[in-house]
Design a protein around this nucleic acid. Structure first.
Lengths: 133, 133
DNA sequence: TTATACCTGACTAAAATAGTAAGAATAGGG
DNA sequence: CCCTATTCTTACTATTTTAGTCAGGTATAA
C-alpha cells in the first residue's frame, strides 16, 4: 500500500515541471532542485517519456517538459505509469478459475476506489499546494 | 501501490471469519479452505490478534474468531494493521524540515482519500460479495 | 567539432517479501 | 495425569524488489 521512492521522485518531478509549465528543464536542474539522485531520476524520466507524459529535448539546453497541460494530467496516470498499475491485487484475471481467490472482488473494489480518487486529482491542483514563490 | 501477499491472506482470513461469525475456526481449517500456507497464516493471525482484531482460543478445538462484529470492522483497519500503515508516503512527519519534500502534501492527500475509502468498507459488506453457499 | 544533455542497458548492495522450521505454552479429553 | 491439538514465539532462509550506480552511446546547439 506504499508508493516506491521511484514513484515519489517521479511525482515530484512532474509537479516541478507543472510549476514551470512552459520551460524545458534538465534532469540535472530537477535533481538539484528537489534533491533527488540524478542518474536514478534519468531512468524515471525516460519511463515517463515513453509513457507519453513528457517531451524531451536533446543536446545543450535540452531537458524535459510536460507533454500536456497540468490541467490535463492526473496524478493517477503518473502513479500508474511508474508503479506499473494502481491495482493492489497481485493475481491476474485468470485467478477466478480457482475459487480460492475470494478476495478478488474486494481488491477490485479497492482498486476502483483508489483509481477514481487519483484520477480526480490533476497536476494543476497540486502545484498550488505549496507555499512557494 | 500494491498490497502484499501477506495482507491479502489476512484479508481473506478475516472475510472467512466474518462469514462464520459465531464459530471458532482453526488456522488449519482456514488455510485449507482458502488454500493459504498454514505456517505463514499462523504469523498473520497472530498479528491480527495482537492488534485487537481477533480473539484466539488455545488447545484442542481452538482457533480464532473476530473480536468485533463484521459490521464494526473496516477493511481499512485490517489492511492498516497488516501493512503497517495506509500511507503511501515513506517519510515521517519530521520530513518537513527540509523543503525538498514538496510531495508531502500530495501524498498526504492521496492517503486521506484511500483511508476514507477503505474505512467506509466493512467486513459485513464484503461477505455478501461472493456467490456462496 | 565539441560540450551538453538525453538514452540505454547492465550491474550491484541492501531491504522487503514469502515463506519454513522448531520448539514452548496451553487446554481439553480420556 | 498424560496425550494431543492447537496457538504462540522466535529464528532462519531463499527469492524478489528496490534504489541506486556505472559505462558507454546518441543527438544537437553553438
Amino acid at each position: 500500500m506504499r508508493v516506491s521512492q521511484r514513484t515519489e521522485y517521479g511525482v515530484r518531478a512532474m509537479i516541478a515541471l507543472a510549476r514551470d509549465f512552459d520551460e524545458v528543464i534538465s534532469i540535472k536542474e530537477l535533481a538539484e532542485r528537489e534533491s533527488m539522485p540524478e542518474t536514478f531520476l534519468e531512468q524515471i524520466m525516460s519511463d515517463l517519456r515513453k509513457a507519453g507524459l513528457l517531451k524531451s529535448v536533446r543536446g545543450p539546453n535540452g531537458g524535459f517538459k510536460l507533454k500536456d497541460a497540468p490541467s490535463e494530467i492526473t496524478i493517477g496516470r503518473v502513479i500508474a505509469t511508474l508503479e506499473g498499475s494502481l491495482s493492489p491485487a497481485r493475481c491476474g484475471s485468470d485467478c477466478s478459475k480457482q475459487d480460492g481467490c475470494s478476495t478478488r472482488s474486494v481488491l477490485d473494489r479497492i482498486e476502483r476506489s483508489i483509481t477514481e480518487t487519483l484520477d480526480g486529482i490533476y497536476l494543476k491542483d497540486l502545484v498550488g499546494d505549496l507555499a512557494h514563490e
